[in-house]
Amino acid sequence: MKCLAVLTSGGDAPGMNAAIRSVVRVGIDKGWQVMGVRHGYTGLITNDVISLGARDVSGIIQQGGTMLGSARCPEFKTEDGRLKALRVLNEHKIEGLVIIGGGGSQTGAHALSQMGFPVIGVASTIDNDLYGSDVTIGVDTALNIALEAIDRLKVTALSHERAFLIEVMGRDCGYLALMAGIAGGTEAIVIPEVETDPEALADELRSAYQRGQAHALVVVAEGAKYNAAALAEYFKKHCKRLGFDLRVTTLGHVQRGGAPSAYDRLLATRLSADAVERLTRGEHGVLVGFVKGEIKATPLAEVVANKKLLDLHLLELARMLAK
């Protein structure tokens, strides 16, 4: 019986457990023995590998996070670290590996693939910044958590006639901030892709106050040059009169937790099933993602060489809506 392994790497994302479950059960159905690698690439290097059966993944589809655990692994970036990983894979007679994760994880997948090992990536990151997939596992859940927070903060902002700077995750990509800002009807959006003039933002808040608005909300991506804390500090020092009393709320890792949405469960299940089917057919060295409404495979070489761009026309739409 051929042996297949699965690991989750990088930041956890709601839906990763659904992806693991799909790999295990579809793998068994296709005749594979399935192994799980714990704690991402670290587990590959340290031989932290377990056997997974159909019952081992019962009751996890609704759980956030990853039952296999995840970790950053600087050692895997070295050739020596990758050679250790290959020795572990060969020791267990593993003939295919499914790697569930985002950009850093798929860079590691590409490195293994270049060394001749059969690897398939599955697109999973709440930042939605991975080339090769229009939407990635975890995005829908994280976006809805941010939106719920915005809706709740709008209530208290209205009650106290305040402005809120709401910081969401997004180190290098403003997707969550942009989409949450549009869906939440906020007055302004700050993202890493577009440089923000804090003076211009202050003018927008003043304008909202002068138009008679009882509150104002600004969604800020954590990776923007001026994140929420930096903006608040700037306003405190340089903008004495905004009109509104200002507060800062940072959502942080709360966006990663909680039960995955139905969309993320279905996406994770479908992408991971497709990954196993491709390995069974002998296809590897690709990322499985969702492109233009269909499941597609993109060579890992293309994934790591390209940057996914944000549709900045949506930022202009958000500006027009914030009247």
Rank of each mutant, 00 (worst) to 15 (best):
A54H: 06
L112V: 02
L287E: 08
D29L: 11
G121A: 08
Q33D: 11
D48R: 02
T250G: 09
D129N: 06
G223T: 14
T156A: 12
M1D: 09
E167K: 03
V98T: 00
G185I: 10
R241M: 05
I137A: 02
Q213H: 15
V139T: 05
P192M: 00
G185T: 09
T125C: 01
S261F: 05
V139G: 02
F164V: 02
M169Q: 09
V220I: 07
F76K: 15
E79V: 07
N90L: 10
E148H: 10
Q255S: 09
A230T: 08
M16L: 14
G27Q: 11
I295H: 05
G174A: 04
P299G: 11
D172Y: 13
I145N: 06
R256A: 10
L165R: 04
M1Q: 09
K93C: 06
N90E: 14
V23C: 05
L176S: 01
V304H: 13
P74I: 06
A5R: 07
R152G: 08
K236V: 00
R247W: 09
L176D: 01
T42P: 03
A230W: 01
P198L: 00
A216H: 07
L251I: 12
G293E: 06
F117K: 14
R241D: 15
E294P: 02
W32I: 00
A54C: 04
S113A: 07
R87E: 14
G289C: 03
G96I: 04
D29T: 10
K2D: 13
A232V: 06
A71F: 08
N306P: 00
E195S: 12
A301H: 10
T46V: 02
G10C: 09
S9Q: 06
T66W: 06
D203M: 12
A18T: 03
G27M: 12
G53T: 00
E283T: 04
A301M: 09
A297W: 11
T78N: 04
T186R: 12
L242D: 10
K225T: 01
L201R: 01
L251N: 09
D140G: 05
A262K: 13
Y209Q: 13
K93D: 13
G132I: 11
G108L: 07
K2G: 02
I94V: 05
G59V: 01
P192S: 02
Y234W: 13
R206K: 15
K292A: 11
K307T: 08
A202N: 12
L112D: 05
E91D: 02
K296H: 04
A229T: 05
A157W: 02
S51I: 07
G96L: 05
G184D: 04
H215D: 06
K236P: 05
E199Q: 13
G170Y: 05
D80K: 12
R265F: 11
I28N: 02
T249V: 07
I120F: 12
L205E: 08
D203A: 11
E316C: 01
R241L: 08
P74C: 11
Y263A: 00
A275Y: 09
D311I: 00
I191Y: 11
V218T: 08
L143W: 04
K84R: 12
G293L: 12
H92T: 00
